[in-house]
Each structure stands twice: as C-alpha cells, then as structure tokens.
Design a protein around this nucleic acid. Sequence first.
DNA 1: CTTGGAATGTCAACAAGGCTGACGTATCTT
DNA 2: AAGATACGTCAGCCTTGTTGACATTCCAAG
Lengths: 165, 165
Amino acid sequence: MRQVVNEDSSAFDSDERLRQGIEAMFFAYRGFTADPDRILATLSYGRAHHRAIHFIARSPGTTVNNLLKILGVTKQSLNRVLRTLIEDGLVESRQGVSDRRERRLSLTDAGGALERRLSEAQRRRMRAAYHAAGPEAVDGFHLVLEAMMDAEMRRTYHAIKEGET
Amino acid sequence: MRQVVNEDSSAFDSDERLRQGIEAMFFAYRGFTADPDRILATLSYGRAHHRAIHFIARSPGTTVNNLLKILGVTKQSLNRVLRTLIEDGLVESRQGVSDRRERRLSLTDAGGALERRLSEAQRRRMRAAYHAAGPEAVDGFHLVLEAMMDAEMRRTYHAIKEGET
DNA sequence: CTTGGAATGTCAACAAGGCTGACGTATCTT
DNA sequence: AAGATACGTCAGCCTTGTTGACATTCCAAG
C-alpha cells in the first residue's frame, strides 16, 4: 500500500537534498580551484596548464594521446598549453622508445617544483576539509564522487589510481 | 614517543588519499555538468546561462547585485548572459518596488520549463549517485563539500538553503 | 617493400565567457 | 543639493575550448 502523503513529502525532501548537493558542488568546486588559481595567475598560466602539469606528474612518461583522453579536450587545445609549458622549460617531451611517434611527457625539475607548489596549496584545503568532516565523511565523499562520474571517466580514474601509464 | 616509520607511512597514505580526492573532484565535476551541457548545447546556451537560470529559479525576485555575489563574476559578464535570456523570453526583469533602482529577476513560464529540464537531467545523475553510495555516504559528501568552500561562499550557500532572497 | 592508418604537430578561424576600465542614467539617502 | 548605489553598456583583451585542413613520421599488415 502506498502512503501518498509520505511519498510526496519524501520526494520533496530528497529533491531539496539533491538541489543542495548541486549547489554544494558548485560552491565547493570554486573553493577547490581557488588556491591554485591564485598561484597560476601570478605566472600567467591558467587551469588548463595546471591540469596538464598535474596529470603529467601523476603519470610521468605519459603520451599526448593518453593525456587527451584524461583531459577530454581536443589535441589543438592541449597542444597550445603543452607548447608553452615546454617552451618555459616545465615539461619535457621525448620521443618514445618502442613507438617513436609517441612523445613521452615528463616534468623537468622546474615543472616538478611548480607542481608541488600547486598541489600543496590544493591539498592544504582538501586536508583541512577532510579533517573537519572526519574520516567516515571522507569515505562517503569519495563514494559519491565516484558514482557521479561517467563510466569511462571512472575507468580512467581507477587506471590512474593504480599507477598505469 | 614518535613512531617515525608509521608517521611517514600515514603521511604518505593521506597524501595519496588527498590526490585521489582531487582527481575525483575533477572527473566527477565533468559528470556533474555533462547532462545539462548537452541540453544547453542544442539551444546555443552555455553553463553561464544555466547558472543564472538555476539561481533565479532558486530565489525568484532576486536582484542583479545578489546574483553577482552568488556567481562571483563581473556585472559585464553576467549582463551578457542575462540580456540574451531576457531577449529570449526566459527571464523577466521588473523594476523593484521599494527600491526602483533594483531589477527583480524571475523566470517566465518558458524559463521555468527549461530550468526543470536542466535540473531534472542533473538531478537524475545526482539521484543515481546518492542511491548507489547510500545515505551515510551522502551525509559525508555534503559535509566535505561544505568544508571545502570559502567562508563567504559557505554563508551564501546557507542563505540560499534557508530561502533568502 | 609498399601502403594504409595511427600518433603527433601545426595553421587558421571562431566562440564562449571570463576580465578591466570608463562612462551614463536613474534613484535613493543624507 | 550632493554623494552613493544599482544597473546597463561600450570597447578591448585573454584563456580555453571548438572545427577543419594538412604535413610528418612511423608502425604494421599485406
């Protein structure tokens, strides 16, 4: 038997909960990017540079194609960013060994230093949030985020986590 | 007494955990925006339009200034978006009553219809994620997101939640 | 050994959506 | 009457995304 009143009420509640979650994602993402953004601005770099640096640091020796899949942008867009990073001596591009068409990307010392700077700023905030919310909340946080990804991105996310190149 | 080995190990673990959280935020945010983005693309609108529509729907009769604070963009940027929405008959702008300098913004019927379409697409994914992760995880998710916001955004977030205009 | 296709780089052109700076108008407040 | 506030707008700039076209290099299959 259906209890119509309760159903409506719970539908309303969960709807409101979902809306709050949507807004929380929006506001939290702003905070999430705020600290690296400030550093990047002083170097006339943008988020696109940060993303490239992050994933190259995470999978040193990765290829352009691999990076394209991870970042989900066009090669032209990635290339523009990559070129400036290489010109500025933050990223190194070496011809692949087994397949010499590939470029194997890695960070130079200067690139690694910037990556640590950006990452530390971002992790500082994450660490504070994790600490404030507690370990169980953090588990839930990770669970929900993962469930929110597209299936393909979830695979990519796990592949990176497992340390694949 | 400090157990140096364990400290190092746990520092490493938590660092890895934080990096996973950072990447999870990145990939999840893509999923979070993917469904509305597809709808918006068919209408030659962008995320900026979605954000405006969302918060006008959430606080009908809100002012331009209020929206500026919420969205954190310049008035020129917001105005460009708002103008097209008004021209297209999705948003209505009425002179304020108590203060006639203000414009009170609200959605037209057509605007409301689009808002529901976008919101439903986004909520569908959130609902699935919440369901997959379970209610305790969802509580944790909200806790961590809130802790990640800038203090000012947290206030704004709560103000909207409480239904302030 | 040749040839098709894959991986990469690059040129050009364009759009969305941020930004700054400057200015104008209407309206409220003091 | 004067200053502050809310809003709109013009102009110009930047980043970062897009499409389309084309060249190069190289692997692998026939």
